[in-house]
């Protein structure tokens, strides 16, 4: 089965990102396809390259990044939500004359149409949020 996943909360404050990661891993283990994970609202903060959680805590952005590398998953941050919250890839940073980009490897930034497309193309859409 082909899954679309929507993550609406940032890491750490809310359990949504942890639940979404656990669900995504379980779905992959069962042989399902993850068509796309889309990050909206504060969920875009899952894509930061600047998080430094304490040694004894999980590193949520790294977990997504590694999962994407391992299983070739499409991780997409909503561009409008990301710009509002200061999450930029290199081209967005350059285009808006910002000093640096802060998006971790494995994610990309695109429009809300990517979420709707995941709803159309996927067999199931599962939403994690507050």
């Amino acid at each position: 089965m082909k899954y679309g996943i929507l993550v609406n909360e940032g890491p750490y404050t809310h359990q949504a990102s942890d639940s979404a990661l656990a669900f995504t891993k379980a779905a992959l283990e069962k042989g399902h396809e993850i068509f796309r994970v889309f990050f909206y609202h504060d969920g875009v903060n899952n894509g930061t390259s600047l998080a430094i959680p304490p040694q004894d805590d999980r590193h949520i952005p790294n977990q997504w990044s590694e999962l994407a590398k391992e299983h070739n998953i499409d991780l997409v941050l909503c561009v409008a939500a990301a710009q509002r919250r200061g999450l930029l890839d290199e081209s967005e940073a350059k285009r808006n004359s910002k000093a640096a980009s802060n998006m971790i490897e494995g994610f990309r930034i695109s429009g809300l149409g990517q979420l709707i497309e995941a709803g159309i193309q996927g067999d199931r859409m599962v939403v994690f949020g507050d």
Binding site: M1, F23, A26, A27, E29, K30, H32, R124, M125, V127
Partner: peptide, 14 residues
Amino acid sequence: YGDFVDLTAEHAAV
């Protein structure tokens, strides 16, 4: 979590 995945597959939508 594995059962959670099965439940989403067994039902028409979530």
